[in-house]
């Protein structure tokens, strides 16, 4: 089966989830929503929390818009668990993964969500704000950032105003259309952990705003038939491609 960057990123998101994990994504998160529904369709055992209040909703409900707050993340839920309860759960150390995104990121994994350009009081572009990204990374076992563009405007040497920063004692994973960066526990900087099959380390370096001094990195396996079939099954309206337009 054919695949592109959206399917590769979705497969990387699916593989990030381990058996028994408690996993959360927030609003404006169409890419992890489709990937997590697919992971459910594949029979992965994990808890799906999101801010529609729904817990383990009926994954066969197909998304019809990219909004992750519609009935398709609520209908068929086995319980409700609101955002305030989700924050409490994670702050008390019981959350495994939070899928978050960013406007910009630097080599320390510091994330800009508040603004781009200018300064905090007079921004050129006022962003939506952290939406939990200030609360969650310090307390989440495996914070995972997805970002559907990989270029030097997005991945920059230094973010002036960090809406959040990853803590030293936790790992952080960053999934881009070209590669996966990881910040291991106890380390300060992101490293390329995998590149995707359709790119090269050279291309990653050319599109990243900081110096990458690694010489060789493993290539992640392409999406499997099972992953691609599951993605198709849960997403007949092709919402996965929304963030790649």
């Amino acid at each position: 089966m054919e695949y592109g960057k959206p399917e590769m990123m979705a497969a990387a998101i699916i593989r990030q989830i381990e058996d028994g994990d408690i996993v959360f994504h927030g609003l404006a998160s169409s890419t992890p929503m489709v990937a997590m529904k697919a992971a459910k369709a594949m029979g992965k055992e994990f808890t799906y929390l999101t801010l529609s209040d729904g817990v383990d909703h009926d994954w066969t409900r197909a998304p019809y818009v990219a909004s992750t707050l519609t009935e398709n993340t609520y209908t068929g839920s086995v319980a409700t668990f609101g955002l305030d309860e989700i924050f409490d759960l994670y702050c008390s150390g019981k959350g495994d993964i939070a899928f978050l995104s960013c406007l910009q990121m630097d080599k320390e994994g510091r994330i800009a969500m508040s603004y781009l350009g200018g300064d905090y009081e007079r921004p050129k572009l006022r962003g939506p704000g952290g939406a939990g990204s200030a609360t969650l990374p310090p307390v989440t076992k495996k914070t995972t950032i997805w970002k559907t563009t990989h270029d030097k405007k997005t991945f920059i040497e230094h973010v002036d105003f960090a809406t959040t920063s990853p803590p030293l004692d936790k790992e952080m994973t960053v999934i881009t259309p070209l590669c996966i960066f990881k910040k291991p526990v106890g380390e300060k900087y992101l490293k390329v952990a995998y590149i995707f099959p359709f790119t090269t380390l050279e291309e990653v370096k050319e599109n990243t705003g900081w110096e990458i001094d690694q010489m060789e990195v493993p290539v992640m396996n392409p999406p499997t038939e099972e992953e691609l079939t599951a993605l198709k099954k849960v997403d007949p309206n092709n919402i996965l491609h929304f963030e790649f337009k």
């Binding site: 927030g26 169409s30 909004s67 939506p128 704000g129």
Partner: peptide
């Protein structure tokens, strides 16, 4: 005062806030 102030995806950033 806000945690996230936006209209999400197709509806875009929050035009009045911007």
């Amino acid at each position: 005062y806000f945690g996230f102030s936006g209209l999400e995806n197709e509806a875009g950033l929050s035009p009045g806030m911007r």
